[in-house]
Design a protein around this nucleic acid. Structure first.
Lengths: 201, 201
DNA sequence: ACGCGCGGATGACAAATGTCATCGCGAACG
DNA sequence: CGTTCGCGATGACATTTGTCATCCGCGCGT
């Protein structure tokens, strides 16, 4: 039996995925978690073959959890299952030690298939997405530019951001200007959108 | 047997939900669709007892589909299943004739339970969400203010919006200013966020 | 008949935002 | 050892955005 733990924050989706995997005769869901911190505890307790992780989760996200799992539960292979096939996500997932990267809008049958292929030692990555990740190149934003742009997603003013990050207003404007330039955007909002679409935040 | 059709754009989630419902001895998934247009065709062909609809779908969304289904397949009860429990969504779903409104982060067991309750003639709505929808009041934005604010979500400049909607720049600014005021926001971006959080767009 | 709200517009003004040049500091790298 | 790069800052400047008062016309309700 292939032993799987599941991390996904939406209970109903998590339950549905568990049921989907439960249909497979050679797969067994031995644990579930609603976020990245939980899944580490669950995996340490159950020592599964596979950890199936969503990326967007409250608290520690799936990528951070993958990194931690590699250290704490070395025998456990990480499969990322995410809504958004963003190039930057794929890149970071691979760097965090994931061996497969699936998007939720591929057919349901691919989930079990991917898990079996991973168990045979293969890596499973959508070829189109792999190409996009490679052609897009690495994240051009410096860490601080990322911070500032991330702080701008919720519509904060320059002043808000400056206070939150303990920077001067001018500095915030400079970083934002750089981020706007590097993303090829025309203003802050476009920069945020483009960076998010690439998985750079 | 309770006959159900399922509309959800993410294949894997759709398949997983189908599997979840398939576990129930008295429920049968007789059709699946990836968007609001498909589900109407499927429901007309299969005449199900229940249509389980996601809201966020490409093309015709779940709420618009619900409205159309009420006319075209009157015997079919509509259950909305959505990621976001936004007050405005609930309100619009009810106006569109839905009899149940579930969010994806409630427990998986609630799905079948809700379907059975609907079949007994009950309405199923999260009490907290119902309270939020009532206390939030109706959408304060005029149709045109909605249009303009919607056109601003992607970071377009005033100029872009004016061209796209065939308005003068000043008019666009006026509508945005009104929307900012009505949402209690401090700028365009916050206004978009607040309006989306309420389900007003 | 009257008021009111909505759509649409203009002009003026203040505030926020984006751009650019320039500076200092420290760490990394050849 | 010099160069480069990231971080942080300042000041000046042009542009964009947000606000407000005011106007017109239309339709709707009383």
């Amino acid at each position: 039996m292939i032993r799987v733990v599941l991390a996904e924050d939406q209970s109903m989706v998590r339950g549905a995925l568990a049921s989907l995997l439960g249909l497979e005769p050679d797969i067994e869901v031995v644990g579930e978690a609603a976020n990245g911190d939980e899944v580490i505890a669950v995996a340490e307790a159950t020592r599964p073959d596979i950890a199936l992780l969503d990326i967007e989760m409250p608290g520690r996200d799936g990528i951070a959890a993958a990194e931690e799992l590699r250290r704490r539960v070395p025998g456990c292979r990480v499969v990322i299952l995410t809504t958004f096939g963003r190039p930057g996500y794929l890149r970071r997932a691979m760097e965090a030690g994931a061996v497969a990267f699936l998007v939720k809008d591929s057919p349901a049958s691919e989930l079990a298939a991917a898990i079996r292929r991973v168990l045979r030692g293969e890596r499973v990555i959508d070829p189109g997405l792999a190409a996009a990740a490679l052609s897009a190149g690495p994240n051009p934003l410096s860490p601080r530019e990322r911070d500032v742009l991330s702080a701008a997603v919720d519509g904060s003013t320059i002043n808000d951001i400056a206070l939150r990050l303990h920077l001067s207003e001018g500095t915030v404007r400079n970083y934002l200007s750089a981020a706007i330039h590097k993303t090829g955007a025309r203003n802050r909002i476009e920069a945020v959108q483009k960076a998010q679409a690439q998985g750079w935040l």
